[in-house]
Amino acid sequence: MRILEEAVIRELPNYYRGKVRENYDLPDGSRIIISTDRISAFDRILTCIPYKGQVLTQTARYWFEQTADICPNHVISYPDPNVVIGKRLDILPVEIVVRGYLAGTTGTSILTLYKKGERQMYGITLPDGLRDNQKLPEPIITPTSKAFDGGHDEPLTPDEIVEKKLLTSEQWQTLSKYALALFKRGQEIAAKHGLILVDTKYEFGTDAEGNIILADEIHTPDSSRYWITESYGASFERSTRPASFDKDFVRAWVVERCDPYKDDIPEIPEKLVMDTSDVYIRAYEQITGKTFVPDNSENTPLERVRKNLEPYFTGA
């Protein structure tokens, strides 16, 4: 199995390790972001999934290119299939989630809140009588605070965002316009590929001039919920979850066998790892309409990444 477990490269400056990405800040104000194959859940690394980093980087690349006319993004170049060189941004403290359906499982999801009897949420009023996984009258934005310190995200209304000075009124209007336009484009393209883009998360930052820039990733299986279009109608009538690209195989397996917040994680079976890799690859191919071509040049993925990033070495 060709796995990029980590990408610690001593010749690159200003190293920062994220849960699944290795980051290096360059003197010119750009950032090297290397997507490894690590999979994270429960605030810890569970295992590595072959080609996951390449799949996510290339899926995001597809969408950044498909939406470049809507809003600026952080991408400068792609020196390697697992690597993006991006503008270094100040990330805005509001996480933007756009939802087109009454779905979700987290405490901040609109389905969870709706089932508790809430109808007013995120500054929006939803009508009575909606069913699980029903399409909303129109897509909505459900912003949350972005917990940089490891705390929990909290629901916000547009008024609260401005009152708490998380964003200016002008910034909120710009983010809203960008997010809804990106989601509309995403749903239109997904529909052509037999998919429903149900909901998605966007992250924005500002550059040195204060311009709002789309960052991180866009419309990937890790940041978005996709349903298979042909399964939706029958599933909705049966009140069952539509078929999807489920990235939670590993997470569900772990939960069945231990308390992942307290216990040691059992060794993940190789078959489960490979099945999850296949899900990511199938997701890439259906989302983009392209065939996934793994880059197996060089002896290892890390050797290939190092070779492609040599122009950025500082000798540090």
Score class of each variant (00 low, 15 high):
Thr200Asp: 13
Arg306Asp: 02
Pro137Val: 13
Asn23Gly: 02
Ile218Lys: 00
Phe292Asn: 14
Glu154Met: 12
Tyr312Phe: 15
Pro81Leu: 06
Arg241Pro: 09
Pro50Trp: 10
Pro72Cys: 02
Cys48Asp: 12
Asp278Ser: 14
Val305Glu: 09
Asp69Thr: 15
Leu113Thr: 05
Leu197Gly: 09
Gln134Met: 07
Ser223Phe: 10
Lys52Arg: 14
Gly194Phe: 11
Tyr261Lys: 13
Cys48Arg: 13
Ala147Lys: 02
Leu113Phe: 06
Gly86Lys: 01
Asp128Glu: 15
Ala181Cys: 07
Arg2Tyr: 12
Ile189Pro: 00
Pro137Ser: 11
Arg21Ala: 03
Glu118Met: 14
Leu26Tyr: 08
Tyr226Trp: 09
Asn133Ser: 11
Asp69Trp: 04
Asp207Lys: 12
Val75Leu: 12
Gln134Gly: 13
Thr125Asp: 14
Gly150Ala: 06
Lys184Cys: 12
Asn14His: 10
Ser176Arg: 14
Thr142Tyr: 04
Gly194Thr: 15
Thr67Leu: 00
Arg99Gly: 03
Val255Trp: 01
Asp153Val: 09
Ile3Phe: 12
Arg17Ala: 04
Phe204Asn: 01
Trp253Cys: 06
Ala283Tyr: 12
Pro143Ala: 01
Ile124Met: 09
Trp63His: 13
Asp90Phe: 03
Arg21Tyr: 02
Phe42Glu: 04
Ile140Lys: 05
Glu6Ser: 14
Ser109Asn: 03
Tyr15Ser: 07
Asp90Glu: 13
Ile265His: 10
Phe292Tyr: 15
Leu180Ser: 12
Ile161Leu: 08
Phe245Arg: 06
Ile9Thr: 09
Thr157Ser: 05
Gly18Leu: 06
Pro93Ile: 04
Ile32Phe: 06
Phe245Asp: 07
Ser231Thr: 05
Tyr226His: 12
Met121Tyr: 04
Glu237Ala: 15
Asp264Ala: 15
Ile76Thr: 10
Lys115Asn: 11
Gln54Val: 09
Cys71Trp: 05
Gln54Arg: 08
Glu230Phe: 08
Arg38His: 08
Thr112Tyr: 13
Ile228Phe: 15
Thr157His: 00
Phe313Leu: 02
Leu214Pro: 05
Val250Cys: 05
Gly210Asn: 02
Trp227Asp: 13
Ser244Trp: 05
Thr144His: 08
Ile9Arg: 03
Pro143Asp: 01
Ala179Val: 00
Ser297Asn: 10
Glu203Phe: 07
Val254Lys: 03
Asp295His: 05
Pro127Thr: 03
Pro158Asp: 02
Asp90Asn: 12
Leu167Arg: 01
Leu309Cys: 10
Gly104Lys: 07
Ser235Arg: 10
Gly205Ala: 02
Arg10Phe: 07
Pro221Gln: 03
Thr108Asn: 15
Glu267Gln: 14
Asp159Tyr: 04
Ile70Phe: 06
Asp80Met: 04
Ala234Tyr: 10
Asp43Gln: 09
Glu230Ala: 13
Cys258Thr: 15
Glu22Thr: 11
Lys115Phe: 04
Thr144Trp: 06
Pro13Gly: 06
Trp227Cys: 14
Gly315Val: 08
Gln134Arg: 04
Cys48Ala: 11
Glu160Arg: 06
Lys192Gly: 10
Arg119Ser: 10
Gln286Met: 11
Val255Thr: 09
Asn211Phe: 02
Leu180Phe: 01
Phe42His: 04
Ile218Pro: 06
